[in-house]
Design a protein around this nucleic acid. Structure first.
Length: 436
RNA sequence: GGAGGGGUUCCCGAGUGGCCAAAGGGAUCAGACUGUAAAUCUGACGCGCAAGCUUCGGUGGUUCGAAUCCACCCCCCUCCA
């Protein structure tokens, strides 16, 4: 969908750092003026790490991941590192409490699940700047402790480590502490950078702004171990204008894995972006140029209508993550549920909606009371809540408001003798099929 | 190992024998208003239609009655060794 494999000397374009800056995507740069020259000079190798903290990446990881892609598009060679080793330790950066360790089995399983997700945005077959996927477990698991402490640990001053902003609150906050395990995380990540520098001549690391301490640690270590000057940049952690946490909804985190967050739910998430955030998110999460985005914003400002930006954002990002198919499925469901008259949907429409990934359950004619069905479909988490929703006029079936708590989903009321489209609140839908 | 401080409902955090299903804030959900925004207002926020039932790290105990008192245990933090 996007061109790639350009040579690094396509000097007519903006350099990658200026491009990122125009998107407000640079928080800190290590290396300053030298960095721009370094990147302009030749094809460079750029890395970013992703730890397996779940079985899927979530949308928060997209900013650095897409940034790697942006580097590749600018002609550089990206390395996506999956943290099979660092994931076993747990990054304490800006975390307010110690985390419990996951079992090694789970972590290696997660590593495998993350690999295809990390790969999907990058081009692994475009010649000189083909992407690389590596696992830091490869160079740490057989490193013996004594050698590690002598060769690597010796380069770190604890005095400096405890000064890092990223662990300060853990050291100072009353009621919290930090284990040596987590405290050592920085050393491991620093070593990754040094190792990638040695193996692949990697000279640049990017990461979220919480990674600044770990990145600068790696820069120092690489200089000490290999006498090489390397560089770093941090990207913004995505925040929302209203202060609430980005990437979460009622039903939880927005994952990249379509089995965990359906393309429809994913699309709806982006569609719900606040006006105050949407232009910023377009810059972070899409490959539209800054100029195009500014133009969209100007048009929205000039118009009295509802802004077009959310729709553009939702389409761009859904297509990027779930492909054309995923996007069209998401759009089909959305149109069926939000713009049409639900009762007039054909049986084929409803089947399509089910296939497209709208949550769907079956019920039998013995257990078709509305309260029961709301709980069974998890539209309400208890009978009590279900009754409250009905009392608040928050529930509708096939487009008809349900006011009666004893309402039953009988065949006579079904669409095409078996379908019910349940709606709770303004945007939560569930398809129910009646089976005899 | 020693001394001290803690573990309360999703989170923070009050509560030190009955007035406690447990203050307050946050988050979340619903409704009104809207643009499937934001802000604002209203309501809900352990389970149960209800009577009532189950909760305050765990287990036992004291008591008519315990989140609150006692014993033991588990976990966390700080300082000292």
């Amino acid at each position: 969908m996007n061109s790639s494999g350009k040579s690094p000397d396509s000097s007519s374009e903006k350099d990658i750092i200026s491009d990122l800056q125009s998107r407000n995507m640079v928080v800190q740069l290590a290396g300053g003026d030298e960095l721009a020259a370094h990147l302009a000079e030749a094809r460079r190798v750029v890395y970013c790490g992703f730890d397996p903290t779940a079985s899927s990446l979530h949308i928060g990881s997209m900013v650095p991941l897409l940034a790697l892609k942006r580097f590749q598009m600018a002609g550089h060679k990206p390395i996506a590192l999956v943290g099979g080793a660092t994931g076993m330790i747990g990054d304490p950066s800006f975390k307010d409490s110690e985390r419990k360790l996951n079992s090694t089995d789970i972590i290696s399983d997660w590593v495998e699940q993350l690999k295809p997700q990390l790969s999907q945005f990058l081009d692994f077959d475009c010649g000189e700047n083909s992407a690389l996927l590596v696992n830091n477990l490869d160079w740490t698991q057989d490193y013996d402790v004594l050698s590690f402490l002598r060769d690597v640990g010796k380069h770190f001053a604890v005095n400096a480590m405890i000064q890092k902003e990223s662990v300060k609150q853990r050291l100072e906050r009353e009621g919290e502490g930090i284990s040596f395990t987590e405290f050592s995380y920085m050393i491991l990540q620093s070593y990754d950078f040094a190792e990638l520098n040695k193996r692949y001549d990697c000279t640049m690391q990017i990461g979220g702004s919480d990674q600044w301490g770990n990145i600068t640690g790696g820069i120092d270590l690489t200089r000490r171990m290999h006498q090489n000057q390397v560089f770093g940049a941090t990207l913004p952690l995505v925040t929302k204008a209203d202060g609430s946490k980005f990437g979460k909804t009622e039903s939880g985190t927005i994952w990249l894995d379509p089995k965990k967050t359906s393309p429809y739910a994913f699309y709806q998430f982006w569609l719900g972006t606040a006006d105050a955030d949407v232009y910023k998110f377009l810059k972070f999460f899409t490959f539209l140029s800054s100029e195009q985005i500014d133009e969209i914003e100007a048009q929205d400002k000039a118009s009295d209508m509802k802004p077009q930006a959310q729709g553009i954002l939702a389409r761009e990002v859904t297509e990027l993550v779930h492909g054309e198919q995923g996007l069209s499925a998401a759009v089909r469901i959305s149109e069926a549920l939000f713009s049409g008259d639900i009762a007039s949907l054909t049986a084929e429409d409803l089947q399509q909606v089910e296939q497209d990934g709208l949550p769907c359950s079956t019920i039998s004619s013995e257990s078709n009371g509305i309260v029961e069905v709301l709980v069974a479909t998890e539209l309400a988490k208890s009978n009590k809540m279900a009754r409250e929703f009905i009392g608040n006029n928050a529930v509708s079936v096939n487009g008809q408001l349900v006011a009666d708590q004893d309402f039953a989903l009988t065949q006579g009321k079904a669409l095409h003798t078996q379908y019910f489209v349940l709606k709770r609140g303004k945007k939560l839908f569930h398809l129910v099929k009646l089976v005899a």
